[in-house]
Write a protein that binds this DNA or RNA. Structure first.
Length: 668
RNA sequence: GCCGCUUUGGCGCAAUUGGUAGCGCACCGCACUUGUAAUGCGGGGGUUGAGGGUUCGAGUCCCUUAGGCGGCUCCA
C-alpha cells in the first residue's frame, strides 16, 4: 500500500489510519452509532472520510442522535402521508423536544383517527428498511424535481437567508435531497429536500415512536400565512423509552392544576362569568388567603408599604402612561360614562371613558406624585395585591396560568440611581427567599438586555449601561445559573426573570424584576437631590408570584395537590373508629383550633375505612384516628397521605408535631 | 384571533346504520356503629351547552353561537 493511499484521521480522539473510501459504517460497527460529527459538522455514516478528518461518533441516545432519529421519523411520516394522500404538499418537518412534527397542506385537515392509519403506514415503511441516501443537487435541478412542492420551492428561494424553522431543510452549504431507497429493488420511493443527516435506514427508527396529535400551524410561523396541518409525533431509541416518556406525560396530566382544582374543590371557571375568570371555592380560598397573608407579612418585614388602588380609571391615566397607545388590544374595551345626548342625537355633555386596569403601575405613580419627594424618601417601596384585567385572546387562555382577571403581588420601587444596585440586590434576595418558603428551590435567572441596534429603546445609553451592569452583577452574585436574553428587554428597561423548576423538572417563569426608565419620564416624576436639584427617579417593577392565580396553579402542579400542611386547606381531619370516640377527637380538635389549626372531625355515618379513603383522596396531610385504645391512653393514631401510619402517639406530642410541621412549612 | 377536536344529571362515562336517554361515584333516606383506601338496601336528579334547520322521528346529520381541549400566533 503506497503512502498516498492511506488517510490519517482521528476517531473519537484516537489517531487512526484508514484506506481511501472508508465511511462511517466501517469506523463504527455498533448499531447505536447512527451518524458522526466530522470536523464539527454532523454527517451521515455514508460520508467517505478525507485525510485529516476529526471524527466523533454520534450515539442514538445523545442529543444529536435523538434529533437525527426524530428528524428521520418525520421523513417517514411525510412519506406515509403522501403515500395515503399524494395531493398533500410538504411543509417543514424538524425534530423538536421529545419528538418531531411535519406540516402539510392538505384539502381536509387530519382527524385524530387518521393518526392510527398513518402510524400503520409508517410502520410499514420502517419495516421495509429503506435507505436514506444523500444527494447533492442545485437550485435549478431541485426546482424541477420539486415543482409540485410549492413550499419547498419557497425554501430553496430562501436558502442562506434567515430561515428560522426552515433550517432543517436547507442550510448555508450545499443544497441536498434525501432519497428513500427501497432495500430490495434499489428504487427511489420517496425523496425530500433536506440538509440531513439521517439514520442509515428507516428500520433503525425501531418501534419507539408514536404519533401524538394533530394541529394546525401557520406556514413559517406567520399568522398572515396559510395554516398548514401539523402532525406531531414522539420518537425514542426504544419502546421502553417511549413508554417512559408516555408515563411522564401521564404524571404531568395527573398533576394538571385544572384537574386537581376540580377534584380538590379549589376553584372553577363558571361559564356564566366568562372565559379566563376564576372563582375560588372555600378550600382554594383558604389556601389563597394563607399565601397572601404570608406574603404580606414578609413584605411588611422587608420595608414595603401597602397601598390600594381602584380597578377602573378614566382613560387619561392610560393615555399618559402610554398603555392605550401600545397595549389597547390587551385591554377590555372602555365604559363610556356621563355622556348626555339631546333629542336630536347631538352630544350635549362630553362623555368620559373608563377602563379596567391592566396594570397597577400608573396608580402607584400617582401615589408617588401626591407630594413633593426628597431623596430622603427613597427608596420608596409600594406594594399592592392589585387586581388587573387583560383581554387575552381566547385561544391563549389556560386554567389559572393564563387568565383574563388576576391579582398581581405587585410592587413598585422608586429609587435614585445610587440606590439602584442595593435595591436590586435586596429585591432579588427577597424574591428567592420567598419563593423558597413556598417550596420552590431550584432556580435559574434570565437577564433580558437591549439590542443596541434597535432604536425603540428609551433612556440614555448611560443609564442602560449602568442598569444592565447592575443587574448582571446582582444576578452573578446570586450564584445562580444566568441565561442571557440579548435583545429581550422591553423598550423601557432591562429585566431579570426568575425561572423555577418544579418537582417534575418543568420550568416556569415566576418573578420578574423590571427596570423602567420610561414611566418616570412620561409622568414627569422627580425628587429633590441633596444639592437641591430636581432629579428623576428610576422605577423598579417587580412581582414574585406574577399573579396569585398563576402561582396557585404552579404550586398545585408542583405539589401534585399534596400541599404542605401550612398551605393545605384542611390540615387535620379526625376520624373516630366508632361514634363513641367522636367526642374524644372533638376535644383534641378544640385544642388544635386554639392554635389556629384548620381541623375537622368526620363524624358522618360512613364506615371508618371509607372516611380514610375519602380524606386520603382529598390529600389531607394529617389524619388523626382514635378508638378505644387511644382514648384509654390519651393518645391518637396518625395516618398520612402515603398510607403510612403511627399508632399510639400521646395527644400532647401529636399536637406539637402538627404545630411544628405547620410552623416549619415542612412537607409531610 | 386562526385551525382541528369536543360539550350527555355535581363529576367520570354509555347509548347498534338517526327511532323518543343508561351506568358508576356523589347526593337524599333507612338500616348497620364498625380499628386503617369504597357496608347494604331504597330514592331523587338530565330532554343530551344554547338557538335554528333537515326528517314521520335527532344525543346521533347540517348551520349559527357559547364553553372546554390541543396546537399556531400572542404574552407589551
Amino acid at each position: 500500500m503506497s503512502q498516498e493511499q492511506i488517510l490519517n484521521i482521528s476517531v473519537d480522539g484516537a489517531a487512526v489510519t484508514v484506506e481511501p473510501g472508508t465511511d462511517g459504517f466501517k469506523l463504527f460497527t455498533d448499531r447505536a452509532t447512527v451518524a458522526h460529527r466530522v470536523n464539527g459538522e454532523l454527517k451521515d455514516l455514508a460520508y467517505k472520510v478525507q485525510d485529516g478528518d476529526v471524527i466523533e461518533g454520534v450515539l442514538i441516545g445523545s442529543p444529536d442522535g435523538l434529533n437525527i432519529l426524530r428528524h428521520s421519523a418525520a421523513h417517514v411520516l411525510a412519506q406515509a402521508v403522501q403515500n395515503i394522500n399524494p395531493e398533500a404538499k410538504l411543509g417543514i418537518g424538524p425534530p423538536i423536544t421529545d419528538g418531531f412534527y411535519y406540516d402539510f397542506d392538505v384539502e381536509t385537515p387530519f382527524n385524530p383517527e387518521d393518526l392510527r392509519v398513518l402510524e400503520k403506514e409508517m410502520n410499514r415503511i420502517v419495516q421495509a428498511g429503506q435507505r436514506f441516501m444523500r444527494r447533492v443537487t442545485n437550485d435549478v435541478d431541485a426546482r424541477v424535481e420539486l415543482a409540485n412542492e410549492p413550499y419547498k420551492l419557497e425554501l430553496i428561494g430562501l436558502k442562506g437567508s434567515d430561515l428560522g424553522e426552515g433550517s432543517a431543510e436547507v442550510g448555508a452549504g450545499e443544497l441536498t435531497i434525501y432519497d428513500n431507497v427501497d432495500s430490495k429493488s434499489g428504487e427511489t420511493v420517496w425523496f425530500d429536500l433536506c440538509r440531513g443527516p439521517h439514520l442509515p435506514n428507516t428500520r433503525m427508527i425501531g418501534n419507539g415512536y408514536a404519533l401524538t396529535r394533530v394541529a394546525s400551524a401557520y406556514w413559517r410561523g406567520n399568522e398572515n400565512n396559510k395554516q398548514l396541518q401539523r402532525v406531531y409525533g414522539t420518537a425514542w431509541p426504544s419502546k421502553d423509552e417511549l413508554r417512559a416518556h408516555q408515563e411522564r406525560l401521564e404524571e404531568a396530566a395527573r398533576r394538571d392544576h385544572r384537574r386537581l382544582g376540580a377534584e380538590l374543590d379549589l376553584f372553577s371557571f363558571p361559564e356564566e362569568i366568562g372565559s379566563g375568570l376564576a372563582v375560588f371555592h372555600p378550600k382554594g380560598g383558604t389556601m389563597r388567603r394563607v399565601m397572601e397573608d404570608y406574603s404580606r407579612k414578609r413584605h411588611e418585614e422587608s420595608g414595603y408599604e401597602f397601598v390600594y388602588s381602584p380597578h377602573i380609571t378614566k382613560s387619561n391615566l392610560f393615555e399618559t402612561s402610554g398603555h392605550l397607545a401600545w397595549y389597547a388590544d390587551g385591554m377590555f374595551p372602555p365604559m363610556r360614562m356621563d355622556e348626555e345626548v339631546d333629542e336630536n342625537g347631538v352630544v350635549r355633555k362630553q362623555g368620559q371613558d373608563y377602563y379596567l386596569k391592566p396594570m397597577n403601575c400608573p396608580f402607584h405613580i400617582l401615589v408617588f406624585k401626591s407630594q413633593a419627594r426628597s431623596y430622603r424618601d427613597l427608596p420608596l417601596r409600594m406594594f399592592e395585591f392589585g387586581s388587573v384585567y387583560r383581554y387575552e385572546k381566547s385561544g391563549v387562555l389556560h386554567g389559572l396560568t393564563r387568565v383574563r382577571g388576576m391579582t398581581q403581588d405587585d410592587a413598585h420601587l422608586f429609587v435614585t440611581p445610587d440606590n439602584m444596585e442595593a435595591e436590586l440586590t435586596n429585591v432579588l434576595n427577597f424574591v428567592l427567599g420567598l419563593l423558597k418558603d413556598y417550596g420552590l428551590n431550584d432556580f435559574y435567572l434570565e437577564l433580558s438586555t437591549r439590542d443596541p441596534e434597535n432604536p425603540k429603546f428609551v433612556g440614555s445609553d448611560e443609564i442602560w449601561e449602568t442598569a444592565t451592569n447592575t443587574l448582571q452583577k446582582v444576578a452573578t452574585e446570586s450564584g445562580l445559573e444566568l441565561v442571557p436574553d440579548p435583545g429581550g428587554a422591553a423598550f423601557y428597561g432591562p429585566k431579570i426573570s426568575v425561572q423555577a423548576r418544579d418537582a417534575i423538572g418543568r420550568t416556569w417563569q415566576m418573578s420578574t424584576i423590571q427596570l423602567d426608565f420610561n414611566l418616570p419620564e412620561r409622568f414627569d416624576l422627580e425628587y429633590t437631590a441633596p444639592d437641591g436639584t430636581k432629579q428623576r427617579p428610576v422605577m423598579i417593577h417587580r412581582a414574585l408570584f406574577g399573579s396569585i392565580e398563576r402561582f396557585f396553579g404552579v404550586l398545585t402542579e408542583h405539589y401534585a395537590g399534596h400541599f404542605p400542611p401550612w398551605l393545605a386547606p384542611v390540615q387535620v381531619v379526625g376520624i373516630p373508629v366508632a361514634d363513641a370516640f367522636s367526642d374524644y377527637l372533638h376535644g383534641i380538635a378544640a385544642q388544635l383550633r386554639k392554635h389556629a389549626v384548620r381541623v375537622q372531625i368526620d363524624d358522618s355515618d360512613e364506615r371508618m375505612q371509607k372516611k380514610i379513603r375519602n380524606h386520603t383522596l382529598a390529600k389531607v396531610p394529617f389524619q388523626l384516628i382514635a378508638g378505644g385504645q387511644d382514648a384509654e391512653n390519651n393518645a391518637v393514631s396518625f395516618r398520612f397521605r402515603d398510607g403510612t401510619q403511627e399508632n399510639g402517639i400521646p395527644v400532647e406530642e401529636a399536637i406539637a408535631r402538627i404545630l411544628k410541621a405547620i410552623e416549619d412549612k415542612a412537607q409531610v
